[in-house]
Amino acid sequence: MADKLDILIAGVGGQGTVLASRVLAQAALNNGLLARTAETIGMAQREGSVQSHVRIGMPDFGPLIPEYGADVLLGFEPAEAQRACRLIKPSGFGLVNIHPVRPVTVTLGTSPYPLEEIQQYLCALPVKILFINAFELATVAGNFRTINSVMLGALSSTGLLPVKAADIKDVLLEMLPERVRGVNDRAFELGKEALR
């Protein structure tokens, strides 16, 4: 557990990366740590590539993580994890949802999606990478849109965060409307157990 931690969240617009970064930052603040984030908001949110930067314990710097500076890569989607790997430290850790979101360019056949090669590439990085099927766990929890809660649960079980899993879950549930708290609670717990 470090007091300074840079977390890069990579995903696809609509997967809930913004909520995930806000939850991590607010949980850090609640624990007396400094935190700042930067997110992709606007046009790219329409199913485009998005990245959220979370910086915990960095006082005087900006919200963007420098190249090769991220301690943790939280990949909500395999291709987006690969796209973001320029930002991760060689000694870093990656947690990647293995379930792909195929853009319509792939379905139309105008763009490739070599899932296996991407997976192999990520595994070959000198970074410790764990894969998780967050889509499946989110579906088990009751809604495929809870991938972000699964990922947060899984990340919070790694012991890398300077904040307890229970604190992260509290902030997550507080930020969500009441009607979806149950399903996100289940998703978080499933994520937390998945890496055991």
Partner: peptide
């Protein structure tokens, strides 16, 4: 570093 060529990634424009 030392890794083979990265696989081509899907183009993911906003739609």
């Amino acid at each position: 570093s030392g890794n083979e060529k990265a696989p081509d990634l899907p183009v993911r424009p906003p739609v």
